[in-house]
């Protein structure tokens, strides 16, 4: 169930409520399927203030880790807590997810946002929808069927929809993987604006440029293990591990 956080008319006034979810403490998380270990013994701690990027080559387990944190997957070992709490309904209600390929309902742009605004009056829903469309630069596309939007517009709509419930943390799984540079720039601007208004960002990307541009701190995974955790500056300037150095130099095949 979705729960509204506030009257929803002004995003700014509801900010920083995400603080209560952090620090996120991840302890020894593992994910195994038959005969295969997808994630092993992953531990780290994330603070509320930063934009965290999870990077690593293909098959590192980045998207799996994100899905575990969002509750879409159950880890087979380990646990994690949000400000000391395990994931409960209240925690879940504060999370939102944006997928690599935007999953849009076969409805108009505005109806896609409307859909997630439960528990509000019709007038409140409409006001909130218009505000989110404006934030995502989609006001002129409100009545357009979502599936007829361009790739960049679709992903902006997916983000706007994720923000509708005013989440404390926004997970993004390679949101710009299929987009051109200008569309990527618009998404990154939207991510930055979202962060500025108080939402924790956890972004999975394989794009080192994006990691540098957007990220404050880095979680570097390889082959299901946590290899390094550092600030973006430190990681790119002085990677502590050989794997990290190789990854930055592009020597690990994506």
């Amino acid at each position: 169930m979705l729960k509204r956080m506030d009257d929803g008319t002004s995003k700014e006034t509801t900010s920083r409520s995400g603080d209560s979810l952090f620090p996120l403490e991840v302890s020894n998380i593992g994910l195994e399927t038959v005969g295969q270990s997808l994630l092993r013994d992953v531990s780290f701690t994330l603070a509320a203030e930063t934009k965290t990027v999870i990077i690593g080559p293909n098959g590192a387990g980045k998207s799996l880790l994100l899905r575990i944190l969002n509750g879409l997957l159950q880890p087979t070992s380990g646990h994690f807590t949000w400000a000391g709490r395990t994931t409960d309904a209240a925690v879940r209600a504060r999370q939102a997810m944006v997928f690599q390929r935007p999953v849009l309902l076969r409805r108009s742009t505005e109806a896609n946002i409307h859909f997630v605004l439960n528990g509000l009056s019709l007038a409140e829903r409409n006001t909130r929808t218009q505000a989110l469309l404006e934030q995502a630069g989609l006001t002129s596309r409100a009545k357009t069927p979502a599936r007829l939007l361009s790739g960049g517009e679709q992903q902006r709509l997916a983000i706007a929809r994720a923000l509708a419930t005013d989440p404390g943390v926004l997970f993004l799984d390679e949101p710009c993987a299929n987009l051109d540079p200008s569309a990527t720039k618009e998404i990154e601007d939207l991510i930055n604006a979202t962060h500025a208004s108080g939402t924790k960002i956890i972004l999975v990307t394989h794009d080192l440029g994006q990691a540098r541009r957007v990220g404050d701190d880095v979680v570097f995974l390889s082959a299901g293990r946590l290899v390094e955790q550092a600030t973006v500056q430190d990681f790119f300037a002085h990677p502590k591990t050989a794997l990290g150095r190789a990854f930055i130099r592009g020597e690990i095949v994506m």
């Binding site: 169930m1 979705l2 969002n70 879409l72 997810m97 997928f99 999953v103 309902l105 997630v116 439960n118």
Partner: peptide
């Protein structure tokens, strides 16, 4: 197609069914 989104949105069974029927 919708499954991960619906799970991520924590929809109730009834919300899921009505959304699928409508779309």
């Amino acid at each position: 197609e919708y499954d991960e989104l619906f799970r991520s949105l924590r929809l109730t069974a009834w919300q899921r069914i009505t959304a699928l029927i409508w779309d």
